[in-house]
Amino acid sequence: MQERLSLIDLKVKIGKIIFKNSVLVASGTFGYGEEYSELFDLNRLGGIITKSVTLNPREGNPPPRTCETPSGMLNSIGLANIGIEKFIQEKLPFLRKFNTRIIVNVAGSTVDEYLQVVEKLNRAKGVDMLEINISCPNVVEGGMVFGSDPECAFRCVKSIRKATDYPLVTKLTPNVRDIGEIALAVEDAGSDCVSLINTLVGMAIDSKTKKPLLANITGGLSGPAIKPVALAMVWKVAQKVKIPVVGIGGITNTEDALEFLLAGASLIQVGTSNFIDPQTAIKIIEGLKNYCKGNKISKIKSLIGKLKIGD
């Protein structure tokens, strides 16, 4: 049985990069990898996307920063991170020990800031890909601003494209009129693929105290609650662009992952579910393997975009 299973090809190629399987862990939910390394073998993951890194260290927003909502959670962390210098010195050496793809999530408040971070990463070892965060809803400057307007998104990604040889995945916000438009713009700008969705802007209020439950008042909604929205957007974007799509949003089990693949995602990211069950990604990898075996599918990539519409 072990032999039969190993014949199943879970590999997915994006540009020149081969992912050993379709399951990655999403930015902001997996720290810098080390936080989860005692709980399972990180080598088994298709890839790790780091917490967003900015040019300078950021303290982030005041607490409370998170709150639970029905089938989901709100967060307003505000891109708290140690800054690119410390990331390269202290976090990257640990990550590059693992035989998995390392994708560094880059954020900034100005295009110049993105470029300075990318410049430093150009000289670093052990990075496979950059995820460009133009979709954070919890910061005043930059973040979602770049991702809400096709022209801004184009300019930001184009400048980064010129500044680096790393393959780029641009992370898109769902808080826009037409996500397909933004996806097309970043494709034109030279992004190698797009990942979506980042969190949906949301809010929670304590009716007893009459106060918002987050100090930042609003935050980003994630978790199973947003899965149908994410699925629809992934499907929509996959129709529109030629570059691969990475599906994110409320994925907690193998069925969820399969749905995203069918909708057109080449890879998927597990986010909030890492908090609930740190083994989620590993269970999905095993589940996809078993699904392929049970359905006599030899290559997982043959499932991508195979949604059946009509008879």
Binding site: T29, T66, F275
Partner: peptide
């Protein structure tokens, strides 16, 4: 004491000044 999404230091959700 506070709400903690991950409990592992990954999410930066449970901070104190």
């Amino acid at each position: 004491e506070t709400h903690m999404p991950c409990g592992l230091g990954a999410c930066f959700g449970c901070v104190v000044k």
